[in-house]
Amino acid sequence: MGDPWTDVGVVETYTGRQFDVFDPVAEAVDLDDIAAGLAHTCRFGGHCQHFYSVAHHSLHVSRELPEDEPRLQLLGLFHDAAEAYVGDVPRPLKARYDVFERVEAEVLDAIWRALDVDPPDETEWERVMTADDRLLAYEAGNVLEDGSWAGEPPDLAYELRSDSIETIRTQFLSRSETLRDRV
């Protein structure tokens, strides 16, 4: 890789690697970078009433999926993993400019390869996104000033005040290891 200041797509990661978001390769992916990036990234573009990380959200999405389907839970844990490299872009922006979705999809493909996990099929992805949408409505109703745009919050009982960044990072890594061992 060249100079990260002139190579527009290159970002430095938590572990000091250089990751090109426009040309993502599996060899540049590191699980520690994903866990740290997601633990440091606040949901809703940072507009929560208190800090609530994407890693914490991902843990809850994973737990929303059936316990007897560890692969599905693993897919849920990593559904937002690309955000470790590209940040949490709010849905309205993604909906308007599909380039965000394309970049995220390419980064996520590199992550699946790096983790040696087959990408989700359409049915699996739909189930993960259903869990993600349930969490979105629950989170919006509990961590935003007015999250009514997300619909009626479901009756869930997840803690939405993130522990320390280090604690959430460790929990994410531990859940990843547990699920990967079960798949």
Rank of each mutant, 00 (worst) to 15 (best):
D23Q: 14
A39L: 06
Q49L: 15
I34C: 02
D163A: 14
D116L: 01
H47R: 09
T167M: 15
H60V: 07
A26G: 07
G46P: 04
A39M: 08
Y158P: 09
H60G: 07
A55P: 07
W149S: 11
G141W: 13
N142W: 12
I34F: 03
L156K: 12
G2A: 12
L156V: 14
D98V: 11
Y158I: 12
G16D: 03
L136C: 06
E145N: 10
P92T: 11
A82W: 13
R113E: 09
A95K: 04
R175K: 04
P153H: 03
L77K: 02
G37R: 09
R182Y: 00
D146N: 12
D33C: 06
R161P: 09
D33I: 08
P92R: 11
K94N: 11
E152H: 04
G46T: 11
R96C: 09
A105P: 07
L108C: 00
L74Y: 01
E177C: 00
V107E: 05
E12V: 09
Q171I: 05
L160T: 15
C48H: 13
F22G: 11
I165E: 11
A84P: 09
R127Y: 02
A105C: 05
D181E: 05
R175E: 07
W149N: 09
G16S: 05
A140Q: 12
T167H: 15
R182V: 00
Q18T: 08
D132L: 05
L59A: 13
G151Q: 08
G151T: 01
L65M: 04
V99L: 13
F44I: 08
G9A: 08
R17N: 05
S162M: 03
E83D: 09
A36T: 01
Y97H: 10
E145D: 12
V128K: 06
A35R: 07
V61P: 07
H47M: 13
D146K: 14
L74D: 01
P24Y: 01
A150M: 03
E67H: 07
E106H: 15
T41D: 05
D121N: 11
A110G: 10
G16W: 00
V25A: 03
I34P: 05
E139P: 13
V61L: 02
F22T: 11
A95V: 10
R91T: 08
Y97M: 07
D133L: 04
A150Q: 04
V54Q: 10
Y158G: 12
R63S: 15
F19H: 11
D68A: 12
D98R: 10
E122C: 08
A82E: 13
T123S: 01
R71I: 00
V103R: 13
E69K: 14
M129W: 00
A150D: 01
L65R: 11
D163R: 14
R96P: 01
V103C: 01
Q18I: 04
S148F: 14
D80A: 07
G2H: 01
L93A: 08
A81G: 02
W112H: 04
T41C: 03
V21F: 06
L179R: 03
T13S: 00
A105Y: 09
D80T: 06
D155E: 12
I34R: 05
E67C: 13
D163T: 06
A84H: 12
Q18M: 10
A55F: 00
I168H: 15
G2W: 02
V61R: 06
D3W: 13
L74F: 03
A39E: 08
L72N: 05
S62L: 13
Q49I: 14
L93P: 00
H56L: 02
H50G: 12
H57G: 07
E177K: 00
A28C: 00
L72M: 02
